[in-house]
Write a protein that binds this DNA or RNA. Structure first.
Length: 116
DNA sequence: AAATTGACGGGTG
DNA sequence: CCACCCGCCAATT
């Protein structure tokens, strides 16, 4: 497995309860700005085996964009359960809930990360 | 080998 | 707010 994928996994696992991160944010942190689509793919294929908190990942506008109705519902439920308020359209307020990790600590944990 | 496909993002009008 | 376009990139066709 390539290091980028591992970074993404590590970052996602590091999103605390009650917080969310965006696809782009994760990609950038993992060293691939613009690579949001890889995050999509990883989330889609590795959520189960790595027990990723996939429900804490939303798009840049703070929307739950999952297509499958059932999973959409589950994601909202998970978020509500950990205190993240989302409206009827499945949107959360990024100003409140966005997780902004401490980069220094991330480097210790994940190795090389892009300079800011 | 070339085209398609995503739970995306940013810019523009 | 919406529609549209273009960049992104690995896995799958």
């Amino acid at each position: 497995m390539n290091p980028y994928t591992l970074s993404v996994i590590g970052i996602i696992k590091g999103i605390p309860e009650g917080c969310v991160m965006t696809y782009g944010q994760i990609a950038e942190l993992a060293g691939s700005p613009g690579g949001a689509r890889q995050v999509v793919r990883i989330l889609h294929s590795l959520s189960k085996p790595y027990e990723l908190p996939w429900h804490r990942v939303v798009n840049a506008k703070g929307e739950i964009v999952i297509k499958n109705e059932e999973f959409r519902f589950i994601q909202m439920l998970h978020l509500q359960n950990e205190g993240v308020v989302c409206d009827d359209d499945g949107r959360v307020d990024l100003k409140i809930y966005r997780f902004i990790p401490d980069l220094r600590r991330c480097r210790d944990k994940l190795g090389e990360l892009p300079a800011f």
